[in-house]
């Protein structure tokens, strides 16, 4: 049902959804059972004329079972949840399948900058393709991403991938994803990062091999042209005043 509202576009999106469902069912069913019991008990032992209220200590075994049995059931369900969560954690966070490509993601107030290694497959070379607020990836390829923040805490969130990773300045986070569905999906920031946090969005374009190759060639040519034309002065762009 989740997929009906939010497409699953990565290899591990189904695992995340399954975990969400397990949690939702266990907690949901338990919530309903507890609330039904709660209100039934209130009704059953409501104030009645001629019946004095009495304090129940709960020492008797048949009364104590009202606590013990649910308690033990909750413990068993907790173990089930922990096992399910660890399984997904190991699959997504502790396992890094070999990468077909590596991309760099830089977060800053309030934009995303993506660096694709370009045709040579190496980052920080002249043919890198750098884009702002638009990320292009190839379907059915495993990507490693190196996520950094330039200023404050951000969170790289791709709902269709079921991927969310915090980014803090001074640290490079490595993760992975494998797109399984072509199309255009949302990227957003999931960590309050300032006044324009709410509009710090970007576009993820998952393409076929042919589409991605065409995009890459067009933009790698642009990158080479821009590089050749770069004749910037030596000062930093922000031009710190000498007296500061």
């Amino acid at each position: 049902m989740l997929e009906h509202y939010l497409p699953r576009a990565s290899s591990f999106a189904g695992d995340i959804d399954q975990l969400v469902w397990i949690i939702a069912w266990i907690v949901g069913v338990w919530f309903v059972v507890v609330e039904v019991m709660f209100f039934w008990l209130m009704f059953r032992f409501r104030k009645k004329p001629g019946v004095p209220a009495r304090y129940i200590t709960g020492k008797e075994k048949h009364l104590k079972n009202w606590i013990n049995i649910p308690h033990n059931i909750i413990l068993v369900l907790d173990v089930l949840l922990i096992v399910a969560a660890i399984r997904v954690w190991v699959l997504i966070k502790q396992t890094m399948p070999p990468a077909d490509h590596t991309v760099k993601v830089m977060a800053q107030q309030w934009a995303w900058t993506f660096t694709d290694p370009g045709p040579d497959g190496k980052i920080d070379t002249p043919d890198d393709v750098r884009t702002t607020d638009e990320m292009h990836v190839e379907v059915n390829k495993t990507y490693h991403f190196v996520l950094e923040s330039m200023d404050v805490a951000h969170s790289f969130f791709i709902p269709a991938f079921r991927l969310k990773q915090d980014a803090d300045p001074g640290r490079a986070y490595t993760g992975w994803f494998k797109p399984t569905k072509t199309g255009t999906f949302d990227i957003s920031c999931a960590e309050i990062c300032g006044i324009a946090h709410g509009v710090m969005g970007a576009k993820l374009v998952v393409e076929t091999t042919q589409e991605h190759t065409a995009w890459m060639q067009a933009h790698a040519a642009d990158a080479a042209t821009a590089d050749a034309g770069a004749s910037a002065p030596t000062d930093s762009t922000t031009a710190q005043p000498a007296s500061q």
């Binding site: 800053q108 309030w110 934009a111 900058t113 710090m200 762009t237």
Partner: peptide, 10 residues
């Protein structure tokens, strides 16, 4: 353009 990135979304 780091400063531009701040102004653009606003």
């Amino acid at each position: 353009d780091m400063e531009g990135h701040r102004m653009r979304p606003l």
